[in-house]
Design a protein around this nucleic acid. Sequence first.
DNA 1: AAACCGGGGAC
DNA 2: GTCCCAGGTTT
Length: 361
Amino acid sequence: MSSFAEKMIRWQESYGRHHLPWQNIRDPYVIWVSEVMLQQTQVTTVIPYYLRFLQRFPDLNSLASASLDEVLAQWSGLGYYSRGRNLHRTAQLIVRDHQGIFPEKVEVICQLPGVGRSTAAAIAVFAYGARCAILDGNVKRILARCFGIERYPGERKIEALLWQKAQELLPEQGEKDVNGGIEAYTQALMDLGATVCTRIKPKCAICPLQSDCTAFRNDAVGRLPAPKPRKPMPERETVLLMLMAQGKILLEKRPARGIWGGLWCLPEMPVSENAIEYCARHFGMEVQPLPPRIPSFVHIFTHFRLRIHPHPLQLNLSSSATTGDHIGVERMWTTLADALTVAIPAPVAKLLNMAVASRNA
DNA sequence: AAACCGGGGAC
DNA sequence: GTCCCAGGTTT
């Protein structure tokens, strides 16, 4: 029965990546550069940039004394340029405040611009062999699956739990010397996450943690880690006027751009308005409510929910049915049956069908 | 087009 | 502290 860390370290020995350009180097400067480049960027993308960057800026002093423009030129194409700016700024900060010596304590490393808790831990591990836990996207995914954590890992309490797990799972001192210790273990997490415990199509069949993995046991690998909860879409409201006269209903053509672009639609009115006044003002029509009242309903769009308040109205006989004040807005009076044959949005079709049904009732 | 991502900044 | 986003890439 071997521990989590032992399994990971053994797996790393046989199946992990051992010849990445920043491996087997103890220089905190190059490890720092590589870890920052590896934030949100895959290994294969990073490698050529890393090699060029180190050729041009082989040590901290060369980076600190370069111009920002030159640093960004080297960074060009890698994306997330604030990383490049922070790298340059940090190099100058280390020269100024730390006598040009890269800090050794993880608490200090963590304060460097562009270096957070996980990146600081990775640097401390690979540069100094410190026994620190990392928790990047790969590790979150591994732990969420292994421990069957159902909630979104970005939640504050869940993230705190994951940090705690990550800390607890670190190899013991005894496990250290034999197998390459904390460095191999940390690299194992990164490599397993990148090559086996991937977000989609994970290779559970060859995973060293299969027998420990709660998600695998429960056939839950596909839905863990839980995705970020979609923030509830904003809800908007509108009134759709169902203006009826002599068996016909008034439709308006929507502007080409925007919601329901170019479709025929019921006239839209802000919920803050009074329908009778609004019709008088906009259409020059005298109207009265036309029972029955239709309950409001919600229509779902990609970016928002639209609560639609249908408002059936009868045009008074004495009133004109032809006037309008919106220059350029096409309008037509049409039978319900004909309205259903032209291009109309789904919720409008629903309302027209309801109107047909209530008339036939 | 939708999900994802470490750090940073706003509060 | 805590919440949320800018700025990108990947699927």
